[in-house]
Design a protein around this nucleic acid. Structure first.
Length: 541
RNA sequence: GCGCCUGUAGCUCAAUUGGAUAGAGCGAUGGACUUCGAAUCCAGAGGUUGGAGGUUCAAUUCCUCUCAGGCGCGCCA
């Protein structure tokens, strides 16, 4: 419908040879006295000496005289905006669409089957997942589902940094824990990992250790921690299509390959016994070391190879979801892609801001290396997966999130997620009740939608018709929070409507049938939306 | 010092990406269950959008300056 109106206006602009300043838009009206759709065309047309209001009147007049007018009840002009009021039968169309598309309702083909790779979490296997990872996980999973729904081919990937100094420290820390348990005087390295989880892992090591190589300790710790991470993700409802190990890139020569490629482009030089990449030529603030003085690679070197490989695999868009501590890393990675001739838009980095936990007023400061932290596991156990995810997703990714544990625990029943789930449960029970009273399961063709003439009913129909538009917006701006906000609004409208009007009644079957259809549509939007967010659909509460 | 994020109702956050009278929840006040689930609903209260300029028909949104908080600025990852 939006497109139809847009085309009608476009045609008029061409005929009248109006010159536009920027683009005009057609959007659903935010108030009912503004009709169903509004446009700002007149405000964008520049005619010296003529008020936008006059231009708007003229355009409105042209449409009123055309055959397109059959779509509209009326067209009004206010403040330079042109407001379109649709005829009733458009509502019928909305209901037919939703009931026909079922669990596909809302899906669109914005992606045209393009391939997107979303890399997220990618936590180092040096400790349990933190609440920061949890937010990234919830975000990445929801974004993946939404983009899939928007017509993209999506792959979810976890990049595992299983090499480097941090892994060495992990091994040494485990070794120290092991010998401490045996009563020997062995201290954990200064920058080592102090977490109690290493003590637990140390206890799992068999009595006699024959292999005391550095690799033994590292591998043992990594394996156990990774198992824990996988279990946390599974229980949180997050899954990955693919896992890529940093070590595999090193072993199969991908890192050397990429350095050779850079060398042939003359973007590599040697200074102070190290190899440098001239990333400044591509917008970075300083050049970066790829190979250190001691001959080992920095984190950056294999990461270039990794991202290069992603593009080689044919992905049209790479999305990386990172914590804010990696912010400064963006320019250098983009520089690397640019130097190979790829557009920097090929990579979109979403920075998911930190979550700060509070217990009441008290801020909980956390560090993986010290034993001071609340893990994602603890958070899930305390607050529940659904509520945790919703808290994470309800606000924009780039906003800092204050998560008060006491509050989240104490007021679980007042949490927005339960509000939405309750709307879902309530709607599904109404449908069930209707069926038990032989009022459900009607043939759509027998339903007279025009009896849905209450303002609330029209507003709800407009709202749920907007669902595909929400998906489209998110596919463009990658702001998952928009869906959570939207579902809350739908729930709110439904709860009010329910309170005001009786839905299942044997007094007037025509009205009852139509309202049951409406509730089924609401139910469909809620269930599709919650599923996209990774939140469960309870039978009862 | 440089870069980025944030600043909106007492608190936590929105605002269709430049649109019409800036909206929700929590908290506080008053009200609504003999009927489809009251984990709900209804009503009014609450604002100089941190501050000052600028761009234009229109600024919470864009630009400049400024104040406050957070994060980053490794041959760590």
């Amino acid at each position: 419908m939006k497109e139809k109106i847009y085309n009608i206006l476009q045609k008029i602009i061409e005929e009248k040879k109006y010159s536009l300043k920027g683009n005009f838009s057609v959007f659903p009206s935010d108030k009912k006295e503004f009709g169903d759709f509004s446009t700002n065309v007149a405000l964008r047309i520049m005619i010296p000496g003529i008020q936008p209001q006059t231009t708007a009147e003229e355009i409105a007049k042209l449409i009123r005289q055309s055959k397109d007018m059959c779509l509209f009840e009326k067209i009004e002009v206010r403040n330079g905006f042109i407001n379109f009021f649709l005829k009733n039968y458009q509502y019928q169309q909305i209901i037919e669409n939703i009931l026909a598309e079922r669990d596909k309702y809302g899906s669109i083909n914005a992606g045209k089957n393009q391939k997107i790779l979303i890399e997220f979490v990618s936590a180092n296997p040096t400790g349990p997942l933190t609440i920061a990872h949890g937010r990234q996980a919830a975000y990445g999973e929801a974004l993946s589902r939404i983009l899939k729904f928007a017509g993209y081919q999506v792959t979810k990937e976890y990049y595992l940094n299983d090499c480097g100094r941090q892994m060495d420290l992990l091994g040494e820390s485990l070794k120290a824990n092991y010998y401490q348990i045996k009563g020997e005087n062995f201290s954990i390295p200064e920058d080592g990992y102090q977490g109690g989880y290493l003590k637990e892992i140390a206890k799992m090591i068999p009595e006699e250790v024959n292999d005391t190589s550095k690799e033994f300790w590292t591998h043992f710790a990594e394996k156990e921690i990774l198992n824990g991470i996988k279990k946390d993700l599974l229980d949180f409802g997050i899954s990955f299509d693919s896992w890529v190990r940093e070590s595999s890139l090193r072993e199969n020569g991908k890192v050397e390959e990429i350095i050779d490629k850079l060398k042939s482009k003359e973007l590599i030089y040697e200074k102070e016994n190290a190899l440098w990449f001239s990333s400044t030529s591509f917008g970075d603030d300083k050049d970066r070391v790829l190979k250190k003085q001691d001959g080992s690679y920095t984190y950056f070197a294999p990461d270039i190879a990794y991202h290069y490989q992603k593009i080689e695999k044919g992905y049209n868009l790479l999305v990386d979801i990172w914590g804010p501590d990696h912010f400064g890393y963006i320019p250098r990675l983009k520089a690397a892609l640019k130097c190979f001739g790829f557009s920097e838009d090929k990579l979109k980095v979403i920075i998911v801001q930190l979550t700060t936990l509070y217990r009441g007023k008290e801020k909980i400061s956390m560090s993986t290396r010290k034993d001071q932290f609340i893990s994602l596991r603890q958070l899930m156990d305390e607050v529940g997966s659904d509520a945790t995810k919703f808290f994470y997703l309800f606000r924009k990714a780039e906003s800092h999130l204050d998560f008060d544990l006491e509050l989240a625990k104490k007021r679980t029943e007042e949490n927005p997620v339960y509000y939405i789930q309750y709307a879902y449960v309530r709607a599904s029970h109404i449908i069930k009740f209707a069926q038990e009273n032989s009022l459900g399961n009607n043939n759509l063709l027998d339903i007279d939608i025009s009896v849905l003439d209450k303002d609330e009913e029209k507003e709800i129909l407009k709202k749920i018709a907007f669902f595909p538009e929400i998906i489209k917006q998110i596919s463009l701006n990658l702001q998952v929070s928009g869906l959570a906000q939207y579902l809350l609004e739908v729930s709110n409208m439904f709860h009010s409507y329910y309170q005001k009007y009786r839905i299942v009644t044997s007094e007037d079957k025509t009205i009852s049938h139509a309202r049951i259809m409406l509730v089924e549509c609401i139910l469909r939007v809620l269930s599709n939306g919650l599923t996209l967010l990774g939140i469960s659909l309870p039978e009862k509460m």
